[in-house]
């Protein structure tokens, strides 16, 4: 198990789900200036292949449906990173009718990075923090999703029609 945790921490494949304004911060972290690849983090095309889901900005209900679908398509163990204040408490869209105020209600989040769009250094710092948590085996937010699956589904159903939108395959 320890070897797996070590290897999982060293090679985190990121599902680059660019929602909201945080997406602009990703290119500098990826390219030569801040080079996140040296920590073994490379952007992957499909949720099937990735372990890390980045929510980089405010989430409207419409994108939440896609995010939940992508999250469920990722193999476990999977980790979620919430960027910016919009994911924490809705940020400057706190009073908007269709923006999600607390990301936690819908999908479990491992690490939040505050700041109205954190700079690349903060993102790298978050990655390193996540690495240690995985290495020590503490980052198991994904278990919460499986254990209280109904609670999450109830919260989601308040916002959109889960029945129509969820994937029906034998879990």
């Amino acid at each position: 198990m320890k070897l797996f945790n070590f290897s999982q921490s060293r090679s985190l494949w990121m599902m680059h789900f660019c929602t909201g304004c945080g997406a602009m911060e990703m290119p500098p972290t990826m390219t030569s200036r801040f080079d996140m690849e040296r920590f073994g983090i490379i952007p992957m095309a499909t949720p099937r292949q990735s372990d890390l889901l980045l929510i980089t900005g405010y989430l409207t209900i419409k994108t939440l449906k896609r995010v939940v679908r992508a999250y469920e398509q990722m193999p476990t163990p999977r980790y979620v990173l919430g960027f910016g204040s919009c994911t924490i408490n809705g940020g400057m869209y706190w009073d908007s009718y269709n923006v999600i105020k607390k990301l936690e209600l819908y999908i479990p989040v491992d690490i939040y990075i505050n700041g109205c769009m954190p700079r690349p250094e903060a993102i790298i710092d978050a990655f390193l923090k996540l690495r240690e948590m995985i290495a020590k085996g503490e980052a198991n937010a994904w278990k919460k999703y499986i254990e209280n699956y109904e609670w999450y589904k109830k919260n989601q159903s308040e916002v959109f029609d889960v029945e129509k939108w969820s994937i029906k395959n034998e879990k």
Partner: peptide
Amino acid sequence: NRYGPPIYQPILDVLKLFGKRHTV
């Protein structure tokens, strides 16, 4: 013009992939 991952990175990736629990 960037450092890039350690050389043994692919081995780590493979180990991580084999460690995955629920695959479809």
